[in-house]
Design a protein around this nucleic acid. Structure first.
Lengths: 406, 406
DNA sequence: AGTATTTGTTGGTGCGCACAACCTATCACG
DNA sequence: CGTGATAGGTTGTGCGCACCAACAAATACT
């Protein structure tokens, strides 16, 4: 049943939701006092005490004294994340399969990069499953409960089927299902830019904002993630956020997607790397080189500055459209778009939203992504955490938690 | 607290939510059997019986035998909307203030159009309040509980302040507040296109879809409403949905907003009315005249057909961008965009999403708005219903309902 | 040391929903 | 036209959960 104002609830849903709300807050803040929880959630002190007790019993969190705090009144114990339960985060790329174990609070506990040239989906699943088992064995005190995959391509909502990943040459691969079988645990897959935006929203440059627009520039194009009222926008089938294929110039050059004048065709990373004369820089190297080149030129008419300026111009047109369309609170730029932004002059940056509607544009903050190279793994972990945080007592029966917890 | 996975609940929230869910379903379907409710909401039969009983006691709904149904088993009573409680819907326009009383189920019970040339906000509030009282007096068996206003302009989220309504010449008018005071009841205001999209979503061409993109073309421009996963997208401050100010051609002509190449600058209603030689046609007249002109020409190179074709071209560019960005399930076109769509050739229509990403474009259904001239009033009523349906027992104490009912 | 302040703890209360058993109304079929 | 099957409303019981109020504990201020 779509578009209903509210879904019905039963009595057990109350407990589930409240446990979930507490755990979620501990997750995003990595440490909260019980007093904080009562204030933030508006529940009764005794209720919070009870809920935290349940989470402790199930091995999700620990309680300990809060040294740092001071002030009148009885000190409130700090509720902190624990490494008893982990999730696996997986990011298959052109020549490497990146796997990590991530704890509650989004911290990477272990990470291993395995080099494989253009893996098939089957190979990727196999390698990922093996590495997850290896890393898991190296952390015997912890248990991995679920997995999330960040895929550079279009992933169908619901079943996590990769409809198209041009960079990897995948087409209609039931990735999440295969991984679920190979690992014997819940697994989910989603577009990498979507997950990047989730990571930035929860732990990075999007923190505190309710509606965020995230644009990431990579070697194969520009992807994006949209967050509205705190919820990621997936679109009806999961393919939302393709900001790279916004039409920016109807008479523009052809794009790999078959259309003309797409943003990603007009603002390619390759143009920037070529301008600074680097073959395969990572994002940090590109960022540094661009800044250096622009300062060296000193003048906005220099060759590198001109390219930066031209690209920023196209980006501004896209930003203007999307700002008018979605009225976001914050825009987060990642990858080469971050480098482009930082290399642009203050004037050009200030002018980037000059053509957007004033009421909308004045309150938008444009920021550079904060999470760097771990972004996709953290985002993939968030995806895996979703189901667990939504129902913390279902996934981990009390006996299991009690049995191996000292 | 923004972007949290779930908000906490208390025990009373269960009742509230379930009452709200039942009432909402009756509202959108205008008549549901108790058996339907049990199935749709997944609650126990006894619970549904109880909830319906409460709604009946508070004067929201009636129960009566369902004549139409047939089949084995005990017949289930039909839960139907009642006219005991109404909301006021208000739509101030350039030269008329349109006021209606709307019942649960979105049906217009009474409507009065009052002609006023370019009213100030104060005048509009005064006239609206007077007309609401008049209509209210003509329906003594009913009570008006809340009001909603559809404003042709940018309305701030939260307080319903009209930041800018160029057509009316309003600027920073605290409309909702003024109306709340004048009427002595809750009042809310929102952008007219947003409310149009809500009306189409609930009762019109958007029914059944969870993510809908709505574009409406009027004499003063193109507005839009976005619905994602069943929820209207307002943006951080309420100004989302300005599809008319999507950049479609960076070298295009200047728009009233100060930018260049906005969709609404390139697809003006005036061009179509001029092409068919009508001065001030309403949407239906324009639609009929366009269809007639195009069929008369027979040929795609005729003058009217050319204009239609050119406008559809620009519209297609905008649709392509937004489809790639939001992956909607359905697109609903209203006003002159509906006329434009219907006057276009089948080939041109089929080609309109040719440049969008195939996975996204194949499942999009493009439809023409279904609700006609009542759309904005129904949408404004929806806005007013929001608060009432969210908490049906709070607004109407039992005594009040019992006292004047029966 | 005494008081004010903040917070955790405990037992009692109310309430909403699930469940099961029972009752009722219709249809189908011989 | 009666009997069985089917669908669905009705009633009473029990459980779970959050709230509340009073109490206990741990700090800071004077």
């Amino acid at each position: 049943m779509p578009n209903s104002r509210s879904t019905p609830l039963d009595t057990t849903a109350v407990r589930r939701r409240n446990l979930s709300a507490v755990l979620d807050l501990v997750h995003r803040r990595r440490g909260v006092t019980r007093a904080d929880l009562t204030r933030a959630l508006g529940l009764n002190r005794s209720t919070i005490g009870d809920l935290v007790g349940v989470l402790v019993a199930h091995g999700w969190v620990d309680e300990r004294d809060d040294q740092t705090r001071s002030g009148v009144g009885r000190p409130s114990p700090l509720v902190v994340t624990r490494d008893r339960w982990l999730v696996a985060a997986i990011n298959p790329e052109l020549d490497v399969i990146d796997v990590a174990l991530v704890s509650l609070g989004g911290e990477i506990v272990a990470r291993r990069r395995t080099f494989v040239e253009r893996p098939s989906a089957a190979t990727a699943v196999e390698v990922a499953a093996r590495v997850v088992r290896e890393l898991s064995a190296e952390h015997p005190q912890a248990t991995v409960l679920a997995a999330g995959v960040a895929v550079p391509g279009l992933v169908r909502r619901g079943d996590g089927c990769v409809r198209l990943a041009p960079r990897l040459g995948w087409r209609d691969e039931p990735l999440a299902e295969a991984l679920r079988e190979a690992l014997g645990m819940p697994a989910a897959a989603a577009n990498d830019a979507h997950l990047g935006s989730r990571a930035e929203l929860t732990f990075g440059a999007g923190q505190g904002a309710a509606s965020v627009l995230y644009l990431n520039g990579g070697p194969s194009g520009i992807g994006g993630g949209i967050v509205v009222d705190g919820r990621p926008v997936e679109g009806s089938a999961g393919y939302a956020g393709e900001i790279g294929h916004l039409s920016v110039d109807p008479r523009g050059i052809a794009c790999a997607c078959g259309a003309h004048g797409c943003l990603e065709a007009l603002v390619p990373r390759a143009a920037l790397t070529a301008a600074v004369g680097l073959a395969h820089p990572d994002d940090d190297e590109l960022d540094a080189a661009l800044q250096q080149a622009v300062t060296a030129e000193g003048d906005a008419t220099g060759p590198v500055s001109s390219i930066v300026r031209e690209q920023l111009g196209w980006l501004s047109i896209a930003l203007r459209s999307v700002v008018n369309l979605l009225n976001p609170e914050r825009i987060v730029l990642g990858g080469h778009l971050a480098a482009l932004w930082r290399a642009s002059s203050a004037d050009d940056r200030a002018a980037s939203l000059a053509e957007a509607l004033p009421v909308t544009a004045t309150d938008v903050r444009i920021e550079v992504a904060a999470l760097g190279a771990q972004r996709l793994l953290i985002g993939a972990a968030e995806l895996a955490w979703d189901g667990l945080i939504a129902d913390p007592t279902e996934v981990v029966p009390l006996e299991a938690a009690g049995a191996s917890a000292s």
